[in-house]
């Protein structure tokens, strides 16, 4: 919950993915609860009937069909022409979105670092399985901060930064560099960022959004913009353990790291009880909102092991297989 006092931010792939985690990620592949048509032939079965070896169905021959696909065995048996239809294997688009607002730079362990590692792990799985991978960071500031010009860095460094069209194991480092090039900070209007994201979207696929979803202007509009355009949306809400179970006491002036709004509170048992009830209600509302729009929601604490999240929880919600 509290701003992480000092953190050594990751700078390369090894900082994000350990060798043991990579070993656990290698057998995994992306999945989608929906089936999308890809642009390149990939390793993914598509509903689109194609030229792969995976038989799908038969259909009557019509004029103009490729004669190579006629099932002669059936013709011999029924004296009718049927075409063999095959499932076409194609690639899958994975879009990883990170919330880099200042609120994610809190908690112990740091929530943004946890998001970076998870995004890297997902991206790695996508890349090594020849899927198209895109990564977007909403908000945040460049890291390391550019030396010139002098003066305070702008609080809002732009709604989103996107790295697109990564494919293949060779682009893993590119993804890692991109993820490490952003530090969380500033405020974020989720609606605007989602709007930009929706406008710049290409194709269809799986979009995984990492955020704490603590947006002052709400998450409803933004998620509404992102849904309904063929994306399989997976929301991963990352909370720090201190946000789930606060351990602060006394008479406090709480200051929001994003907009500096303050709240004077005297911590007491009923107040903490109310806080937890509020958090539970907030999460429940997010879940209900997402379910109504066919999104999957996963709430994880930033102290959860990344491999467990990726290998178990994401598989359970159908993002990985």
């Amino acid at each position: 919950m509290l701003r992480t006092p000092s953190i050594s931010r990751p700078q390369r792939l090894e900082d994000l993915l350990s060798t043991s985690l990579i070993a656990r990620l290698d057998p995994l592949d992306l999945a989608s609860r929906r089936v999308f048509f890809g642009k390149l032939k990939g390793e993914r079965r598509s509903k689109k009937r194609g030229h792969s070896v995976e038989f799908a169905d038969h259909r009557p021959y019509v004029s103009g069909d490729d004669l190579r696909h006629i099932d002669w065995n059936i013709f011999g048996r029924l004296d009718k022409l049927f075409l063999k239809l095959f499932l076409e294997e194609e690639d899958l688009s994975l879009h990883v979105v990170l919330d880099a607002s200042a609120s994610t730079d809190c908690g112990e362990p740091n929530k943004f670092f946890f998001m970076q590692r998870c995004a890297m792990a997902l991206g790695y799985v996508g890349l090594v399985n020849l899927n198209r991978v895109a990564a977007t960071v909403m908000g945040g500031t460049p890291y390391p901060a550019p030396e010139a010009p002098a003066g305070p860095a702008p609080a809002d460094a732009g709604p989103i930064k996107t790295l697109r069209d990564l494919r293949g194991r060779r682009r893993v480092h590119d993804l890692a560099r991109f993820l490490c090039s952003i530090a969380p900070g500033g405020t974020l209007s989720f609606r605007k960022a989602a709007e930009r994201l929706a406008l710049s979207r290409r194709g269809k696929g799986v979009m995984v959004i990492f955020s704490d979803f603590f947006f002052k202007d709400g998450y409803d509009d933004g998620l509404r913009l992102l849904s309904g355009h063929g994306y399989d949306l997976i929301l991963i809400q990352v909370l720090s353990p201190q946000e789930v179970d606060p351990s602060i006491t006394g008479d406090l002036r709480l200051k929001d790291v994003e907009d500096a709004e303050t709240a004077e509170v005297t911590i007491s048992a009923p107040l903490l009880k109310r806080y937890k009830a509020n958090l539970a209600a907030y999460n429940q509302r997010l879940r209900e909102f997402a379910l109504r729009r066919d999104m999957a929601v996963l709430t994880v604490k930033s102290d959860s092991p990344v491999d467990v999240l990726v290998a178990d929880q994401l598989r359970r919600v159908g993002v990985l297989k």
């Binding site: 919950m1 509290l2 701003r3 609120s103 994610t104 809190c106 908690g107 929530k111 704490d212 603590f214 002052k216 720090s240 946000e243 602060i248 006394g250 008479d251 406090l252 002036r253 709480l254 200051k255 929001d256 790291v257 994003e258 709004e261 303050t262 709240a263 004077e264 509170v265 005297t266 107040l271 109310r274 806080y275 509020n278 958090l279 907030y282």
Partner: peptide
């Protein structure tokens, strides 16, 4: 007013009741 300790937190949304008191 009490002398209060300043703390930076991720969001004050959930301290809505306290903010209401404020």
């Amino acid at each position: 007013k009490l002398r209060r300790r300043n703390l930076e937190i991720s969001t004050t949304i959930l301290w809505k009741k306290a903010v209401q008191d404020l």
